[in-house]
Design a protein around this nucleic acid. Structure first.
Lengths: 115, 115
DNA sequence: ATCCGCTGCTACAATAATGGTAGCATTCGA
DNA sequence: TCGAATGCTACCATTATTGTAGCAGCGGAT
């Protein structure tokens, strides 16, 4: 309803106070990690190009996620479009190992029954 | 409506085919990373204890997430309760650096305005 | 000045996901 | 047989996400 809260803190969980849970709350939202990933991996781009890169993301959610990521200090919006800030790149670097791990994991649950 | 899909693939995104996006789709859900985190960090536990550890998670969602994590081969449900499987611990190990990073990050966006 | 295309972004309504409470069926020990 | 604990489901209210359409601003070409 056009509200787009983000008053300063996420509406959802993360009440435990632990920073890791606050981070999980930020990243544990639709497209959040994917946006950061493509922004770092494929470089800065415009709002609409980011839409295309992510596939089926709607502008409503993309705008919401970008606001959250900007507020988290991970992404910024300079004239040329959106780009990851140093802190966002740091986080991306930590996520990179997941890329390699996910390939093994995909082979594991792909062919195998998954029991 | 008692549906609890999980027919074999998540209903949400991850259509890009890239394993990392499939992983982001799995982990980018409410409580998913938190459940794996507490299960690895604080050890195996029962369904209800997991509820308490996670705070305000509802049994409906916890059950859904556990099904997804089990199907992903990251978690199993032995007689004594729930525990992380080797592959889940692997993933947890990759997330551990996020714990340290999140502490710096929390200090950064906490006191500071966050511009 | 006018039109065009691009930018980021919002309105609106429909659908899906999540939260919260109550409660079931089962097991185990007393 | 009774109570307590187990994993889990029904139900409904609330929130999040989707999908489509479109706005206002800007710069360049005409």
């Amino acid at each position: 309803m056009t509200k787009l809260p983000i008053p300063g803190k996420p509406v959802r969980g993360s009440q435990s106070g632990a920073p890791i849970m606050a981070l999980f709350d930020l990243l544990g939202r639709r497209w959040a990690m994917g946006i950061l990933w493509t922004l770092c991996k494929d470089g800065p781009c415009t709002f609409r190009e980011l839409q295309e890169r992510c596939g089926s993301i709607s502008p409503t959610v993309l705008n919401t996620r970008l606001k959250e990521l900007r507020q988290a200090g991970l992404v910024e919006h300079s004239g040329e479009g959106y780009r990851a800030k140093p802190k966002g790149i740091e986080l991306y670097e930590l996520l990179v190992p997941l890329g390699a791990w996910s390939k093994e994991w995909a082979r594991m649950i792909g062919p195998e029954p998954n029991v």
